[in-house]
Design a binder for these strands. Sequence first.
DNA 1: CGGTCTCTAAAACGAACGCTCTATCCAGAG
DNA 2: CTCTGGATAGAGCGTTCGTTTTAGAGACCG
Lengths: 196, 196
Amino acid sequence: MQTSTRDRIVVAAARLLQRQGYVGTGVKQIAQEARATLGSVYHFFPGGKEAVAVAAIEHSGREFAALLATALDSRPDPAEAVDACARLLAEELRASGWIDGCPVTAAALETLGTDSEIQRACAAALHDWERLVADKLLRGGFPADTAGELATTVISTLEGAEVTAQVRRAEEPLLAAGRQLARLLRSYEIAPAEAR
Amino acid sequence: MQTSTRDRIVVAAARLLQRQGYVGTGVKQIAQEARATLGSVYHFFPGGKEAVAVAAIEHSGREFAALLATALDSRPDPAEAVDACARLLAEELRASGWIDGCPVTAAALETLGTDSEIQRACAAALHDWERLVADKLLRGGFPADTAGELATTVISTLEGAEVTAQVRRAEEPLLAAGRQLARLLRSYEIAPAEAR
DNA sequence: CGGTCTCTAAAACGAACGCTCTATCCAGAG
DNA sequence: CTCTGGATAGAGCGTTCGTTTTAGAGACCG
C-alpha cells in the first residue's frame, strides 16, 4: 500500500475538519473518505474522535507552516513577503472554490467552551505561524518587541481576511489585507541593510 | 409575559450559535434555553433550524452593528475610534470568559459548503459592519476608494484578532490589532479638518 | 505447522439529532 | 355560553451520532 492507513485517516480528517468543522464531521465520514473502516480508526486512535482531530490539526498546522515559510522566503523584504503570503492564500482559496480556508479556525471556534486538547493544538499551530512571521521580521531588522506584536497582527489579519474572503467568495479581502499589511510594515521604515 | 416567546427564541439561539456554532447547537437546546417548547419553536419558525439560525444571525448582526457604531462615534479621529473598537471588543471578550466571540464567524465557517440562507445572512452582517467603518473613514476625510479597502481590512483584522484572542485566552491580540490598525490609518496622513 | 500479533471488517449499542404529530390551553368574537 | 384560531406542550418518528464489540485476515517467528 502506498500510504499507510493511519496517514490516510489523518489527511482525510484534516480536510474534512477544515471544511466542515469538528462537530460537523463524523467519524464514519472520516473513515469513508480515508478508504478505511471504523475499526481501523479506533485501532489507530483509541482516544476516539478527539484524538483523530488533534492529529489532523497538528498535521494541518505543519502543512500550513511549510506553505507560510515558503511564501515568506520568496521575498527578502518582509513587507513584500507578507503581501506574497496574502496573494498565495487568495489564489489557493479561489482554486478550492472558497471552501478550503484556515485549517484550524473552524475547529478552534467550535471547541472554545470545552477545554479539550483540540484547543491546545490550535493554539500551538497559531503560535507556530506567528513565530515564523516574527523571525522574518527580525531578520528584516525589526526590533524584537515590535516584531512580536506585528507578527500577531499579521497572522490575525490574514486569518480574518481569509474568513471574509470565504464568506464573500472573493479574493479582494485577502488582497486588500496583503496590501495594507505591507504598508503597515513599511511605515516602520527599517533600514533594509540592518539584517543581522 | 415580559418578552415575547419568539424574541426569547431568537436571543437564545443567537447566543448559542455564537458559542457553539450551527451544527453544535440543537433545536431542543434552543427551546430549553429560551424557556420555550419545541412546539413553539416550530410554530414561529416553520422553516426549522435554519430559519431560526437566520433570524438569530440577523439579530446578532444588528446588535453588533449598534455596538460598533457606538464605539466608532466615541472618538472623532478614525484611528482612535478603531483602536477604541478593539479595546471594547477585548474587554467584552474577557468579561465573557473568552467564549462570546464574533456572533457570525462560527456559523459562517460551518455552512460554507452548503449554500444555505445562513451564509447570505452572515455576508450581509459583515457588509453592514464594513459600511459603518467606511462611513467613519469618509467622514474623517479619507478618499472613497481607500476608505473601502481600509474598512474591509479593519473588519477582517478585528475578526481575526478576536479569534486569536479567544484561542489564546488573552486580550493582547485584540489590543495589538487596535494599535496597529490605528498606525495604519494614521499613515495616510489625512488632514483632520477635511471632514465635511 | 501452530501460535501470536497487528490490522481490518462490520454488526450493534444507547444517546441525541431534526422534525412531525396530536392534544391542550386560552383570550376574544359572536 | 359556544366557537375559533393562535400559542403551547410533549410524545414519538426515523435517522445519525460516537463508540464498543466480536470476528476474521494476513504477516511473522519459533
